[in-house]
């Protein structure tokens, strides 16, 4: 069970990181969200994996899950949402202001094509 869990978090982080390395904003935001899932799972597991033992004190003698990572991850989930929201709106704003959705703020391929076009036009004018 533990090894399966670890492999899953590993794959989740790998996929998230791969997406954050992309050149367009939307996949990067998706990657960040995926990565935050992986990080949350990772943090959560720091208290061990417990079955049937919610950290609620009700008199039963079941082994109880570690409540501290849970509390930390709970706020992390909400903050993660705030971060995703900020990042995606920033991406929208960037597209609105810059006219493209590349993470560097300028479209390399399009820029190259435009320069070529301009050069051709200049040649013709001569």
């Amino acid at each position: 069970m533990e090894s399966l869990f670890a492999i899953t978090t590993g794959i989740l982080s790998a996929c998230g990181l791969y997406l954050t390395l992309r050149g367009r904003t939307f996949p990067v935001v998706v990657g960040l969200t995926l990565l935050s899932y992986a990080v949350n799972l990772f943090l959560f597991s720091m208290g061990g994996l417990t079955t049937d033992g919610p950290a609620v004190i009700n008199g039963s003698n079941n082994e109880m899950a570690d409540p501290l990572p849970q509390a930390l991850v709970l706020t992390a989930i909400v903050i993660g949402f705030a971060m995703t929201a900020f990042a995606i709106i920033l991406a929208m704003r960037a597209r609105g202001d810059m006219g493209n959705d590349h993470v560097d703020g300028h479209d390399h391929a399009k820029h190259d094509a435009d320069t070529r076009k301009d050069n051709v036009l200049k040649e013709r004018q001569r």
Binding site: F5, T9, G10, I11, S13, A14, L17, A38, F42
Partner: peptide
């Protein structure tokens, strides 16, 4: 990095 995360975990 995925391998590292999995190993650490």
């Amino acid at each position: 990095l995925g391998v590292i995360v999995a190993s650490l975990n």
